[in-house]
């Protein structure tokens, strides 16, 4: 059993000596999942578990890690070294992909907490009706196009464009709410870490995050469909 500690990365030097992050490796050089569990994305990148993070710093960390660990660096060192590099790089890639995007980062933090029924988000009826009606409007626009009814299609397109603007505004509001909830969560998480136990504020922050993310998902689905129908 070896615990490898972070050393300075030296990009551009292919070879098995490329440094590794502090993961627990077994004697064969595999990450010991039994010890580390599925490695936590924050831990893989050497970051504290916080939602507010400096994405520039994240980019730099990712690039330097991947430069040292990527299997292409080990191509001439035999299949075992390549296999190990594949596995390590996949962990770095997965962590980066998840944490680089704010929404995905929030979803990941919620996933770590588990599916908690009492924190579940129930979308308000008005939102659902609104989303439903907009979906029907997109359908109507596509039908009008399919039937070659230029006038109806133009009218429908105007309606859809207006609706898109409104949805984008709502999405921006939801993002602002999520950012505020993320700051609350970070504070609660820091306090919980210090207290050595989960504080009630953490669950409150999570509930707010779940609500924001749930709301955002409806708007995003709709925006994807609106964008797609606009380019058709």
């Amino acid at each position: 059993m070896t615990v490898l500690h972070d050393t300075t990365l030296q990009p551009g030097t292919p070879g098995p000596s490329a440094p590794l992050r502090p993961w627990v490796l077994d004697d064969r050089g595999h990450v010991d999942l039994e010890r580390t569990g599925t490695p936590d994305h924050f831990a893989v990148l050497g970051l504290p578990r916080r939602l507010g993070l400096d994405t520039d710093h994240l980019d730099v960390t990712f690039r330097s890690l991947v430069r040292g660990l990527h299997p292409d660096r080990f191509a001439v060192h035999g299949p075992a070294a390549v296999a190990r590099a594949q596995w390590h790089t996949s962990l770095v890639n997965d962590a980066y992909r998840t944490l680089r995007n704010f929404d995905r980062r929030v979803a990941y933090v919620l996933e770590l907490a588990g599916d908690l029924r009492e924190e579940r988000y129930q979308p308000p009826a008005e939102l659902l009706v609104h989303v439903f009606e907009l979906n029907e409007a997109i359908d109507a626009m596509q039908d009008a196009r399919d039937e070659g009814d230029a006038e109806a299609a133009a009218q429908a397109e105007r309606d859809v464009r207006e609706a898109t603007a409104t949805i984008r505004e709502s999405r921006a509001e939801v993002t602002a709410r999520l950012v505020a909830a993320a700051a609350d969560w970070d504070a609660a998480q820091a306090a919980s870490e210090q207290a050595g136990a989960e504080l009630p504020a953490l669950a409150q922050a999570r509930t707010a995050l779940r609500a924001g993310l749930g709301h955002a998902r409806y708007l995003d689905n709709l925006l994807t469909r609106l964008d797609f129908s606009a380019t058709q």
Binding site: R120, Y121, Q122, P123, A125, L127, L128, V129, V131, F132, N135, R210, L213, G214, R217, Y218, D220, N221
Partner: peptide
């Protein structure tokens, strides 16, 4: 009834 699943953002009437 109009309902939605927050897991995936589906809506159903």
């Amino acid at each position: 009834g109009v309902v939605g699943a927050p897991e995936c953002g589906d809506v159903m009437k």
